[in-house]
């Protein structure tokens, strides 16, 4: 569980990460993901606010990046479930997220993720999810 991955390879496999505009910033053994603001991410143009689905997808991708980073497994882990709490509306600006693996078993990992904008202590959304870790030669859930 120690080897750290080259995350650009992980992201290169995910066209949807490009579609959303997700990047990964690695500092030592920590990674922070960024969802770069663009108009396509807006869900409510009146407020305006980011689309909850885009935020949820970003949290999910952050959890998966953290798992790839810590486990060194190339193939993206499969989500089993994710629960997203929406805490504040997302402003039309860059959003950041960090994930922590709460528990990693042999097959399943539990991950917690938080996303914020200007102030990390005022998260806009949080999620926890379970992911199936791909074993070599193992298929469906």
């Amino acid at each position: 569980m120690s080897e750290t991955k080259d995350l650009s390879l992980f992201l290169d496999r995910i066209p949807y990460a490009r579609f959303l505009g997700v990047g990964v910033d690695r500092r030592g053994n920590e990674i922070t993901t960024v969802l770069r603001y663009k108009e396509d991410l807006i869900g409510n143009p009146v407020l305006p606010a980011l689309h909850g689905g885009a935020i949820g997808a970003f949290l999910e991708m952050t959890a998966m990046a953290q798992l790839a980073f810590e486990t060194g497994i190339d193939a993206p882990p499969k989500p089993i479930n994710i629960t997203i709490d929406y805490l504040r509306s997302g402003k039309p600006q860059d959003t950041f997220a960090r994930a922590a693996i709460t528990k990693q078993g042999r097959r399943v990992a539990t991950v917690h993720v938080e996303a914020w904008q200007e102030d990390k202590s005022r998260p806009i959304a949080a999620a926890h999810g379970h992911f199936l870790l791909k074993q070599p030669d193992e298929a469906e859930a």
């Binding site: 995910i14 066209p15 949807y16 959303l20 689309h51 689905g53 999910e60």
Partner: peptide
């Protein structure tokens, strides 16, 4: 849409697409 794929090796849509759709 290929732009929404979660893993180019499988061509499967990313779970986040489903999240966004269900949210909406």
């Amino acid at each position: 849409n290929e732009d929404l794929v979660g893993d180019i090796e499988t061509g499967v849509l990313h779970g986040g697409v489903i999240t966004a759709m269900l949210d909406n």
